[in-house]
Amino acid sequence: MAEQQTAPGHRTVQPVDPARRTEIDKQRVPMSARPYRLLALVKQDAVVRVQKEPDDTVMTWPHLLAIEFLAAVLVSVFILLMGLFVNAPLEDLANPNVTPEVAKAPWYFLGLQELLAYFHPTVAGALTPIFVLVGAALIPYVDRGNLLATRPSDRKTAVLLFTLFCGLGLVLTFIGIFFRGPGYAFALPWVTGMHFSL
């Protein structure tokens, strides 16, 4: 894309010290002799390619920006309403000497806390989270079967394993949230009430 440059006429440009000019410099067209500036480099084959793929693109403005704006507004309204009508929890001042009926970790760690009830703490509290994070990071390097298959129906094993894993996490977290009462013993929420805060 070319763009006219409006050079202010009165400004004088000092030539570069000849001692500092390299071979490449000598071949360059001086900026003042070039009424355009470089906006993009285009690969050779992009220029000579005759057959053009069908264009499946739309303008970012308005199509993408509109949907982003709408989504942001909806979420803003939601958190504003939440903020107006539901107060963030706050209990008594922290006191190391008063153990609460049940101490629960934040909800995203409750799956791990639930595992603590069944396994040795090293397994539940340390090895599992490390395994989950490292394992997740390795997924693209392990799932090398058919690199072109993206449709879930073409990669049933991967989808099944991942879904099972997510389901397991969800179930554990659910138990931790709803079915654990005083002393982190099993409890039914409709009998003993909820023991959970966000």
């Binding site: 929890p89 706050l90 209990e91 008594d92 001042l93 922290a94 006191n95 190391p96 008063v98 153990t99 609460p100 101490a103 629960k104 970790a105 934040p106 760690f109 791990l112 806390q113 603590l116 703490p121 090293t122 539940a124 509290g125 340390a126 090895l127 989270p129 490390i130 805060s197």
Partner: peptide
Amino acid sequence: DQIAYWAITIGTNMAGYAP
């Protein structure tokens, strides 16, 4: 507060079991 104190106590206890 109490929620914060005990939730973090539980959370950091888990890290305490890293081999």
